[in-house]
């Protein structure tokens, strides 16, 4: 792996790290990371991953930039309102780092395109804003065998976990199925402190980088829960659930579907 003068300078702070070096930087430059959602969580993640020199960044988002996004979706500016989010985001990636190739998917992830999109990537970031999407990402990554980072934010709290399909506990091990509609409010209903997107999204980017570099301990088999008001992080440990519908001994979910909320549902969302 030979770096140009510019690259050596650009990535010098990475290269200096004993654990990274030129080799590690090479790994980053060769890696491919997919971001599902270029909104609140996706924004900081894609900026940091571009800065880090991730070679290929995929952006999946069917939305356009809206004024209400700008409170927390820092990849987008006022001038971008009305633009496709993936375009706006891609432009910022390239501006930060021309080494990065950005592939835009100006559509939402669905059961019928998920596997196709996922197959070209090494790691996936879930930056979606609905339970349906989160469960889709979880299922799709399971079937595609792609490691991914899940995260969610609401009000003053955030949560995240990392899943290596086949090895660690998965999203559904902990959250069996989406909660009933309206059982858990969305950001537009309950609101969220903007910076939470930054905090959790950056953590997701860190997990992606660690995965690519092979460093440290990933947030597997635990749910990291953050409370901005108390400024506390909590680890809620869990393990692979043999009864998990996705990855358990007798999985009931064997194909991708766009999740519809179940008819009768008990919310199994553990309260942080």
């Amino acid at each position: 792996m030979s770096l140009t003068e510019q690259q050596i300078e650009r990535y010098s702070r990475h290269i200096i790290l004993p654990e990274v070096g030129g080799r590690g930087q090479g790994k980053l430059l060769a890696s491919r990371v997919l971001l599902v959602g270029a909104g609140g969580l996706g924004s900081p993640a894609l900026l940091y991953l571009a800065a880090a020199g991730v070679g290929t960044i995929g952006l999946v988002d069917g939305d356009v930039v809206d004024l209400t996004n700008l409170q927390r979706q820092i990849a987008h500016t006022t001038a971008d309102v009305g633009r496709d989010k993936v375009e706006s985001a891609a432009e910022k990636c390239r501006a930060i780092n021309p080494d990065v190739k950005v592939r835009m998917y100006p559509e939402h992830l669905r059961a019928d395109n998920a596997l196709d999109i996922l197959k070209d990537y090494d790691f996936v970031l879930d930056g979606t804003d609905s339970f349906a999407a989160k469960f889709l990402v979880a299922d799709a990554c399971h079937f595609a065998g792609k490691p991914y980072s899940h995260a969610g934010i609401l009000r003053f709290e955030g949560q995240t976990m990392t899943v290596i399909p086949g090895q660690t506990g998965c999203y559904r091990c902990l959250f069996r199925e989406p909660p009933p509609p309206n059982a858990v409010p969305s950001c537009s209903q309950a609101g969220v402190l903007g910076v939470l997107a930054g905090i959790m999204g950056a953590i997701q980017a860190a997990e992606a980088a660690k995965y690519v570099l092979g460093l440290g301990e990933l947030l597997t088999n635990r749910l990291l829960v953050f409370d901005a008001l108390k400024m506390t992080f909590r680890n809620i440990g869990f393990s692979r659930n043999p009864a998990c519908p996705l990855c358990g001994n007798s999985p009931s979910i064997v194909t991708l579907r766009d999740e519809a909320p179940p008819a009768c549902a008990r919310t199994r969302e553990p309260k942080p």
Binding site: E9, I16, G21, G22, R23
Partner: peptide, 14 residues
Amino acid sequence: CPMNFVKAKLRLEI
């Protein structure tokens, strides 16, 4: 600094 170390380190890596 730190480019000198960075370059030296890259050289040593190989």
